[in-house]
């Protein structure tokens, strides 16, 4: 009975959080047209959350691509199908790895930065200061950061895919001796723009929105103490990772079966 009650409260807390998050999203969307008019502020945030994540994304993408090249070559060589390496690397990256890993890396690098920055602004009364100057902090602080994250993740995902394919090419063609022409031509034939490239891009848009929303939400509603901000930052990473993986399953199921 006690277990049931605790489960009930956990579920209630989860639904409350989900509801509050949706309401926060609507509040953000209400201010979005106005924020886009002040593009300089959004641009600054794209630089700090997107451009500053570029090196991490490129290095990670390159290594993930190299691992795919190695693993793919190892498996495909058993079936004498190493010419399909390009297809394997490209499909894995475009459909799954690039959107998911980029979103997870973004949550770890930029999401935590967004949460702690907004949380510390609250703890040091900068948010209250803005409210007292009759400036809505959601409009001025939250919306530009959310938009920057939502725009950056799809762009970073594209870069991750491109660099990853290059990593797979370097390992497969330069080190393992796969034919370069076969690598690229197989990829060209088997990768579909709509199903694979656009599908992965849609995933990255959804992941970018979810990770950015969770980061700004946790920061904005964090307790104004050192412990509160640190907990909020942890929640950002945990919730973003879970959200990305659950959403990935739902989107993949939808894209494959159309249900």
């Amino acid at each position: 009975m006690r277990l049931l009650r605790e489960l009930y409260y956990i579920l209630l807390g989860f639904l409350q959080g989900l509801g509050a998050c949706w309401l926060f999203l609507f509040r953000i969307l209400r201010y979005t047209p106005g924020a886009l008019l002040r593009w300089r502020i959004v641009w600054q945030q794209i630089y700090s959350v997107g451009a500053m994540s570029l090196v991490l994304i490129m290095v990670s993408g390159f290594f993930v691509g190299m691992v795919m090249g190695l693993q793919g070559y190892n498996t495909l060589s058993k079936f004498a199908a190493t010419s399909a390496l390009g297809t394997l690397v490209a499909l894995s990256l475009l459909r799954e790895l690039a959107p998911v890993v980029t979103a997870l890396l973004f949550a770890g690098r930029a999401g935590t930065a967004l949460t702690s920055e907004i949380g510390l602004m609250r703890a040091t009364e900068q948010i209250a200061g803005m409210e007292m100057m009759a400036v809505d902090p959601v409009r001025r602080v939250v919306v530009p950061r959310f938009l920057a994250g939502a725009v950056s993740v799809p762009l970073l995902t594209m870069i991750f895919s491109a660099v990853g394919i290059l990593g797979g090419f370097v390992i497969g063609v330069s080190f393992m001796g796969v034919d370069s022409g076969a690598f690229w031509s197989q990829m060209r034939v088997n990768v579909d723009v709509w199903d694979d490239v656009v599908g992965g891009f849609i995933k990255s848009i959804v992941f970018g929105g979810a990770c950015s929303l969770l980061a700004v939400y946790e920061g904005y509603y964090s307790h104004p103490t050192a412990e509160g901000v640190s907990r909020a930052t942890t929640r950002t990473v945990v919730n973003s990772a879970l959200a990305v993986l659950v959403l990935d399953y739902l989107l993949t199921a939808f894209m494959i079966h159309g249900v």
């Binding site: 040091t124 009364e125 900068q126 209250a128 200061g129 007292m132 100057m133 009759a134 809505d136």
Partner: peptide
């Protein structure tokens, strides 16, 4: 409330400057 606050100034204990 925001319109009224434009007529107010508020000095926080720690200043609350944008760091």
């Amino acid at each position: 409330l925001y319109a009224l606050r434009r007529q107010m100034g508020f000095l926080f204990q720690n200043g609350a400057l944008f760091t």
